[in-house]
C-alpha cells in the first residue's frame, strides 16, 4: 500500500495548491466546481454511512434542508452566527432523524419500505419550506443577509478560496469519520444488523440503538453539509436543498462511485457534477432534463453490472479480497 500512500499524498498536495495554479480565466470556475465536489462528496459520504448497511434513505434532502434553512433563518432573523447556528441545525436534523427512524425501527420498516418513508419525509420538508413562505421565502428561496466581503462571524467570504479550503477540510473530515467507523466493531454490528436483525439481536447487538445512532450521525453530517453549502452559495432554495430531486442526486452519485468504499462517494460525486456541468455547457438550456436522463440510464447500468460502483469495482480488482457486495 506504500504506492497508494504516495499517490494519496500527491493528490492531497495537488488539491492543496490548486487555487494558486494559474488557469487563465478558468480559475474561478474550476474552484467553483471543486468546492461543489467537496461539499457534495461530504454529503454523499454521510449518506453512505447508512446506505452501505442497507438503510437506503431516499430523503436525505430533508436533512440538508433542515440544516441549511436553520442557520440561514437564525442568521437572517436573529443575527445568530452560523458557528452556533450549525450546532442548532445539526441538532434539529438529529431530532428529525429520530422522529423518522424510531417508528421505522420499532415497527420493523426496512428495505424498500424504509426507502419510501424517507422519500416522503424529503418531500414533506420541501413542501413545508414552500408553504411557510413568510419565513422561508417559499419557492423563491432566501438570500443570506450580507455581512461585507469577509466576515468570520457571518461565515461569508467574497474570496472563494476561503471556501475552497474550508470545504476541503470538511471533505477530509467526512472521510475520517467514514474510516473510523469502518475500522470499528460498530461497522461489524451494523453489517450484522443489515443482514439479519434476529441473529444480530441474539448475539447481544441492540438493533434499534445502532440504527438510530447511525441514522442520527448521517443526518447530522448531512445537515452540516447543507449549512456549508448554504454559506457558500449564500442562497437557499427548497428545490436545491430538499425534496426528491436532490435526495436522489445524492443517491445516484454514491451508487455510481460505490458506497462500500472510502472514496466511492467522492468519485461518484466528481463524475456526476462533471457530467452535469459538461451537459450544461454543451446543451445549454436546449435539452433541459438531459443530465437527469443520462444519470438515470447510467444508474440502471451500474446497478446491474457494477453493484460496487466504479471506484469500488476498480478497488476490488486491485485488492485481493473482494469487497462486500450489494
Amino acid at each position: 500500500m506504500t504506492t497508494g500512500r504516495v499517490l494519496a499524498a500527491l493528490v492531497l498536495a495537488a488539491l492543496g495548491v490548486a487555487p494558486f495554479v494559474p488557469m487563465g480565466g478558468m480559475g474561478e470556475y474550476v474552484i467553483f466546481v471543486m468546492v461543489q465536489v467537496f461539499i457534495w462528496s461530504f454529503i454523499g459520504n454521510a449518506w453512505s454511512l447508512m446506505g452501505r448497511f442497507g438503510l437506503v434513505s431516499l430523503g436525505h434532502g430533508a436533512f440538508l434542508g433542515v440544516g441549511a434553512y436553520t442557520t440561514t433563518l437564525l442568521w437572517n432573523f436573529y443575527g445568530l452566527t452560523p458557528w452556533v447556528g450549525v450546532i442548532v441545525a445539526m441538532a434539529a436534523a438529529v431530532v428529525l432523524a429520530l422522529v423518522v427512524a424510531y417508528p421505522c425501527s420499532r415497527f420493523g420498516i426496512v428495505g424498500h419500505y424504509f426507502g419510501l418513508v424517507t422519500l416522503a419525509v424529503g418531500e414533506v420538508i420541501r413542501l413545508l419550506l414552500i408553504a411557510e413562505r413568510d419565513w422561508t421565502g417559499g419557492s423563491l428561496g432566501l438570500t443570506l443577509k450580507t455581512a461585507g466581503d469577509a466576515s468570520f462571524y457571518a461565515v461569508q467570504y467574497a474570496d472563494k478560496r476561503v471556501f475552497y479550503y474550508g470545504a476541503f477540510v470538511v471533505w477530509l473530515l467526512g472521510l475520517w469519520v467514514w474510516h473510523r467507523l469502518d475500522r470499528s466493531m460498530a461497522r461489524a454490528a451494523m453489517e450484522a444488523i443489515g443482514e439479519d436483525e434476529t441473529a444480530a439481536a441474539s448475539v447481544g447487538i441492540h438493533v434499534s440503538r445502532f440504527k438510530l445512532a447511525i441514522t442520527s450521525l448521517s443526518a447530522a453530517l448531512t445537515a452540516f453539509g447543507g449549512v456549508v453549502y448554504a454559506q457558500y452559495i449564500a442562497y437557499v432554495n427548497p428545490e436545491t436543498l430538499a425534496g426528491v430531486g436532490v435526495s436522489l442526486r445524492i443517491v445516484f452519485a454514491v451508487v455510481l462511485g460505490g458506497m462500500y468504499s472510502l472514496l466511492g462517494p467522492t468519485v461518484g460525486t466528481a463524475l456526476t457534477i462533471s457530467l452535469s456541468e459538461y451537459l450544461r455547457v454543451k446543451f445549454g438550456v436546449h435539452f433541459i432534463g438531459m443530465a437527469e436522463t443520462i444519470y438515470g440510464l447510467i444508474l440502471v447500468v451500474f446497478i446491474i453490472f457494477l453493484p460496487s460502483g466504479i471506484y469500488g469495482s476498480l478497488r476490488g480488482l486491485l485488492v485481493r479480497r473482494t469487497p462486500a457486495r450489494a
Binding site: M185, A188, A189, A192, V203, G204, I205, H206
Partner: peptide, 8 residues
C-alpha cells in the same frame, strides 16, 4: 468477535 464484543 462481534458477538464477543456486544453480547458478553
Amino acid at each position: 468477535a462481534v458477538a464477543a464484543h456486544f453480547g458478553a
